[in-house]
């Protein structure tokens, strides 16, 4: 396993606009990093360039200090798991997994030993003689993982590997992938558009938008301190409050309402708060409170979601309650100081 460095990577197809704009990042040895973004943000392009399946327009891919930008894909010694699993339909599970070892011209004894070992590790021992068409989606995914791992790759790349599975299996598979990653001390780059999935599985998450990196940090930091409006929006912040006029370093005034935050305002223009962090309170005159009227409500299972009209615009509120509040109710909202985050971009 190894450390991966991507340096000023750019890509444009057929001389058209750039889909990757000068991105750089480093993934440490043994780290599990997810690249998160909506479709077309460049996450799959990045992964394919790292794999060598696509040439970059400029920039470098460096592994353990060695520039491999010009090394062809079949000589990179990486493992890759594809969204479609991409198993060889004409080969059995055993032959699929053995393929990479055969390409490395290992002795038959060693191939058999290593394939058996990895099949047992991934719970596929019983299925060795089956063909891919005879397996369920989850089993195919496991074969695909085993096939990538058996060659002991320097880097494991995964392109939306779970998106073709149903919700329950997806959670189970991601736990299994995480377990294997820790057990085998793998360096993993995992591409996904599912925020929950990547927060659950990753050491760090790299959020991309329009060919650029928006934020690269631990899931906790991204969740509690989104850097930009895009990131905040992407991970479920729905309320955006403009910083009208700065009163001091941590206080601002918007529509005659004074709001405080624990974070420095600096040059920022917007603050944000998650719907579940907005409180519905009784006393109207505390810090960071404002009046509002419920416009609509929605049942979410464990809580109700309300859209509340206030002087600073509509605010989404989530409240855990057994019975909903009724529409047109006049209520007081508190935007707790510690939950009001400043967005610097």
């Amino acid at each position: 396993m190894a450390e991966l460095e991507v340096k000023q990577l750019s890509k444009s197809f057929d001389g058209k606009a750039k889909v990757l704009k000068d991105i750089s990042f480093t993934i440490k040895d043994g780290e599990f990093v997810s690249i998160l973004g909506s479709s077309g943000c460049g996450k799959t392009t990045t992964l394919r360039i790292i794999a060598g399946l696509l040439d970059q327009t400029s920039g470098q891919v460096i592994i353990d200090g060695q520039d491999i930008s010009k090394v062809p894909v079949h000589k990179r010694n990486f493992g890759m798991v594809f969204q479609s699993y991409a198993l060889f339909p004409h080969l059995t599970v055993f032959q699929n997994v053995a393929f990479g070892l055969k390409m490395r011209k290992l002795a038959t004894n060693e191939i058999n030993e290593r394939v058996k070992e990895i099949l047992n590790l991934t719970g596929l021992g019983e299925l060795a003689q089956r063909y891919p068409a005879e397996l369920s989606g989850g089993q195919q995914q496991r074969v695909s993982l085993a096939r990538a791992l058996v060659t002991k790759p320097r880097l494991l790349l995964m392109d939306e590997p779970l998106s073709n599975l149903d919700a329950k299996l997806r959670v189970k598979m991601r736990e299994e992938i995480r377990r294997l990653q820790k057990q085998l001390k793998l360096t993993v780059v995992f591409v996904t558009h599912d925020q929950q999935e990547c927060f659950a599985i990753s050491d760090r998450v790299l959020i991309m938008n329009a060919g650029k990196i928006e934020q690269f940090d631990t899931p906790e930091n991204i969740f509690h301190h989104p850097k930009s409006k895009f990131v905040a929006n992407f991970i479920g912040y729905e309320n955006f409050i403009n910083i009208g006029e700065k009163v001091d370093e941590r206080t601002f005034k918007t529509n005659d309402l004074i709001l405080k935050t624990n974070e420095e305002l600096r040059q920022a223009e917007v603050t944000t708060i998650r719907p579940e962090n907005v409180q519905i309170v009784d006393e109207p005159d505390r810090e960071n409170t404002l009046r509002g009227e419920i416009i609509s409500s929605e049942y979410l299972g464990q809580s109700f979601s309300y859209l509340v009209r206030t002087v600073i615009g509509n605010i989404y509120v989530e409240e855990a309650r057994h019975a909903p509040r009724s529409e047109n109710d006049q209520i007081v909202l508190e935007l707790p100081v510690k939950h009001l985050h400043v967005l610097y971009r």
Binding site: K75, N77, M80, F82, Q83, F88, H90, R147
Partner: peptide
């Protein structure tokens, strides 16, 4: 599925070997 050929390449198969071992059998 072109990803099957890409999978072969990532696993260390050069283009000729991919043709013989992966494309033709399919």
């Amino acid at each position: 599925n072109i990803e099957v050929e890409e999978a072969a390449a990532v696993l260390g198969s050069n283009p000729f070997s991919t043709l013989i071992r992966v494309i033709l059998p399919q």
